[in-house]
């Protein structure tokens, strides 16, 4: 290679922000890779994501510990890659099926293209998988200012309540994302809990793996 050539190229001044721009590009890609991975494992197509983005969720207030008293509920439609109303298929798709009590809301995230809320949950009983002690459950939706964004027919998890959760593990974030509606069933009574345990244990025995 010609030295003259190289020295000509070396006349081009390197701006100070060059490394920062490399980093920004990589971070942007990382964020999008995370999004697409989540889309794959969650196996949901959510046309509502676009709607949510259009609603202009960006902004502060997502981490508010004091939710608005009368939030305006905005729902997002979803379509699923399998029949989520079929417990055998639902359990077959899930990494974990368990009963747990919601301790508190622990955070929100928008990194993956949709508002999501995380909760600390104390595990009471495992049906599928072996979770222990306290885990982070991630639910699509959450508070945004005066609005409560929810996946259609879903309810935001409530502190102090127990639920039967059907979830998939997000290794990157170390949290368990629940299936809207069919994967966060509120336990109404001890009898209801027994009924759910029995129903989902049976479904686990006869699960239909997701392919």
């Amino acid at each position: 290679m010609s030295n003259k050539n190289r020295s000509e190229m070396n006349k081009i001044e390197i701006p100070k922000e060059l490394s920062d721009r490399s980093r920004i590009g990589i971070e942007k890609a990382k964020m999008e890779i995370g999004k697409s991975n989540k889309k794959k494992w969650l196996a949901f197509a959510t046309p509502g994501i676009a709607a949510i983005i259009a609603l202009g969720i960006a902004g502060p207030g997502l981490l508010s510990n004091k939710p608005p008293e009368n939030p305006v509920i905005q729902t997002v439609k979803t379509s699923h890659a399998f029949d989520v109303t079929d417990p055998q298929r639902l359990v077959g798709w899930a990494d974990n099926v368990f009963v747990g009590k919601v301790i508190k809301m622990s955070g929100t995230s928008e990194e993956r293209g949709m508002l999501e809320t995380q909760f600390k949950v104390e595990v009471a009983e495992n049906i599928k998988g072996e979770l222990q002690d306290e885990v982070t459950v991630n639910q699509q939706g959450g508070y945004e200012g005066q609005n409560l964004i929810l996946v259609e027919n879903d309810h935001l998890l409530k502190e102090g309540e127990s639920y039967l959760f059907v979830s998939r593990k997000n290794e990157e974030q170390d949290w368990h994302t629940v299936v809207p509606v069919y994967g966060d069933i509120m336990i109404e009574s001890e009898a209801h809990k027994e009924e759910m345990l029995s129903k989902y244990k049976k479904a686990y025995q006869e699960e239909i793996p997701f392919e």
Binding site: I12, E13, R21, S22, I24, G25, I26, K28, K30
Partner: peptide, 22 residues
Amino acid sequence: IYVKNQNDALDVVQETAYKSFK
């Protein structure tokens, strides 16, 4: 050499970083 200015050349590097990592 292609884009002839600093801003666009920085954009190219950022975009290259983005596309290549993806």
